[in-house]
């Protein structure tokens, strides 16, 4: 039986279009609005959803996602709450791949085995853990694979030569290409640079390649997607959530706007 992630990429290939992944932090700006946002992302046409697990010290994230984490934590979100929110998305959208993204410490404190069991039970399909490079594979990546989930590998502009093979040796699901050397939500990469990197990755693996970091508009999404199999948009949506929360908008209005924004990105990839 193929995984939800495999089915999603196969379907997009059959439809000759790119895959759209959308990131949002669980509990941002609060639990009720966040639940509405996650549903709106799925309804708007995201092919997969990355649910950010909030952390107090997100060292690879720029100001937007740092602030999202803090809003979520202040509203009382924690790792158990994040898993519960993932389960709610799963109940509503049985075929949508759900990737949990974040940092290692909250998982380590929850307990790796207990977390993997809970993540699988919640219907998650994969993990992206920013501060677990391949050198620390035995911490969580191997147990994740044994639990039947994908441990999504990040490839960056500094991942070159023999290291690329090492990083992708046991990769599964898809490859997440971090298009810029930098933190989330800041710089954007040139399309040619992305194309070169994606072809280097394709020389090493048959897995789909998804590009993220610095993709904010439908135009940028279309340009970046042309080089690979899909894109991820994060900070651009998170900024919209922050603005709406600041203006005191209600959950249903934020959801409507989120759905429209995601739909505009999805349309650009068809």
């Amino acid at each position: 039986m193929s995984s939800r992630i495999e089915q999603t990429f196969a379907r997009a290939r059959a439809e000759q279009r790119s895959v759209l992944g959308i990131f949002a932090t669980a509990g941002d700006p609060d639990r009720q609005k966040s639940a509405a946002i996650l549903q709106a992302i799925a309804r708007g046409g995201a092919d997969f959803i990355e649910i950010g697990m909030p952390f107090s010290d997100p060292m690879a994230d720029g100001p937007s996602i740092q602030a999202a984490s803090l809003r979520a934590l202040r509203s009382g979100m924690n790792l158990q709450g994040t898993l519960d929110m993932a389960a709610a998305v799963r109940a509503e959208f049985p075929d949508l791949p759900i990737i949990l993204m974040g940092y290692y410490n909250p998982i380590y404190i929850y307990g790796n085995e207990a977390f993997l069991a809970a993540a699988a039970a919640a219907g998650a399909d994969g993990l992206i853990i920013v501060d677990l490079p391949v050198e620390e594979d035995d911490e969580l990546a191997q147990p994740t694979r044994q639990a039947g989930l994908d441990f999504i590998r990040l490839v960056t502009p500094t991942t070159r030569g023999a290291r690329l093979e090492k990083v992708l040796a046991e990769a599964s699901g898809f490859v997440y290409y971090v298009a810029v050397a930098g933190i989330t939500g800041t710089k954007s990469a040139a399309t040619e640079t992305i194309a070169e990197a994606v072809s280097a990755i394709r020389a090493v693996t048959d897995l789909p390649v998804v590009t993220g970091f610095g993709i904010r508009t439908p135009q940028q999404a279309a340009a970046a997607a042309a080089a690979g199999d899909g894109v991820v948009v994060g900070s651009a949506l998170v900024d919209r959530i922050a603005e709406s929360a600041e203006k005191g908008k209600q959950a249903d209005q934020i959801a409507t706007e989120t759905e429209a924004f995601v739909a505009s990105l999805a349309a650009a990839l068809r």
Binding site: M59, L132, P133, L154, T158, T159, V178, A181
Partner: peptide, 19 residues
């Protein structure tokens, strides 16, 4: 692996790992 007992290690983003 840079470990002192269970402590230490190299828990950094892939961008930094080659450095």
């Amino acid at each position: 692996k840079g470990r002192f007992g269970i402590h230490g290690g190299r828990f950094v983003a892939e961008t930094l790992m080659p450095l």
